[in-house]
Design a protein around this nucleic acid. Sequence first.
RNA 1: GGCGCCAUGGUCAAGUGGUUAAGACACCGCCCUUUCACGGCGGCUUCAUGGGUUCGAAUCCCAUUGGCGUCACCA
Length: 488
Amino acid sequence: MEEKRVRTRFAPSPTGYMHIGNLRTALYAYLFAKANDGDFILRIEDTDRTRYVADAVDFIKNTLKAAHIIPDEGPGYGGDYGPYVQSERKDVYLKYANELIEKGYAYRCFCDPKSDETHGKFGGYPGTCRDLPKETIEKNLAEGKPFVIRQKMPKDGSTTFHDMLHGNITIDNDTLEDQVLIKRDGMPTYNFAHVVDDHLMKVTHVIRGAEFITSTPKHVLLYKGFGWETPAFIHLPAVMGKGEDGSVSKLSKRHGATSFNELVEMGYLPEAVTNYVALLGWSPKSNQEIFTMEEMEKSFSLDGLSKSPAIFDYNKLDWMNGEYFKKMDPREFASESRGFAGDLPENIASKWDYLAGVLQSRISRYDEIPDQIHFFMAMPAFDAELYRNKRNKVTPEKSADILPEAIEGLSDIDDWTPDGINAKLAELVEKTGLKKGLLMWPIRIAASGQKVTPGGVTEILYVLGKDESISRLKASLESLRGYLSENN
RNA sequence: GGCGCCAUGGUCAAGUGGUUAAGACACCGCCCUUUCACGGCGGCUUCAUGGGUUCGAAUCCCAUUGGCGUCACCA
């Protein structure tokens, strides 16, 4: 048998929302196609008119673009098998459904869903119209009675299909219901439309979520009914989330952000999200973890796929995003991060590029920025205990001794630049004979009012500016003295 | 409930009958350090349980348990 060109597809319904699990499915389908020099198709499954969301197709395309998943074919991308939007292919499905009726693998059902008491209940459809006499059907048709087209499932036996990840899966036919193929409104159901489209679009590998495993036999029976070759199936395990109580379930709102876009809004880089998600369920041959899309396209292979569900770990995403920040061009980081900082006073805003440089290696998400820099705008409440640090042998008392000299020295600086400040600080170390850590600690605390700061003394003083720095140091010294006299 | 899928540490995972059971995140400790971060070193913690098969099982089989999924005129 000759090798066919690999063709995969991503077939979302246009809901205006891209769940991270969906994104991963798209990514794997894309990577598999690229790794095999094949084609990746985007197809919109919009056969449920009640779920129509405006602009959702653009939303999907934009999201894929942001994730660097670029379809070879699809709406707006061209291709020889279009249209790639199912609602625009409505007539095609009816034609094929009629073919199935003629072959005896499907039938018209005239039951009214509202008066059918078994509808939607456990046990499902009872097969009322399965063997309607020809006369009745013709009569109903002549009367213009509305109907749906159902698939006629075998009553016994079983259906087996091969899944490239899971191996052979067999399901008894008596668990299969006579599912609807064409709905009352003339639209096909997913279960029917995707089979027809996958065949017509020459899709070779169907990569989708594991939730479709149990309905795959129905699809296989459809292929058989038509006499079509079935594609290869790869059913991906779900992406899970872990709740605070330790329970595990499909990733959902209660676990935090669940969509690609939310993650990006929180300040994760699209590349990092894609990279992280790729590793959630796929393991490369090597121990490499940071991948460009090009690298993934080369090294992706099915045998690295995991069969078990994976829990989405924000911790690791944070780490990975931080790695991407570190590799980022500083100018790009400065401009991309600026929006997350919010309104800044002029003296800070004018030094944004510098401050961003300090932040770049210290944060793992853009949205950490406001908390990180808040102290520049407002001095936190005084806390004497901050002036105590074991490693540098700093105490509030010593700090009160050190600060006056520091203030005096710093006040002399004309050249208020990182270099200028640094030089003066070094000079103070020299002059006082104090250990660096012992001298720097109180100054940093007095200027920032917090134990943990982005950057060291030099960075903080520079960003604060001379006037503000000196006045903060003086005010802090006052507070410290007040505290000491009260407590002695 | 029927049916199906899954099962290596807190998390992602390598592993395909013989290994000291990789690596990463997180966590803890130490070192370095002008804070934080970075970096370095070390530690913690895993083959769900019970039966087989085998000289030998994380690896093969069965059962149990647990988790998840599915039973729509949704996809």
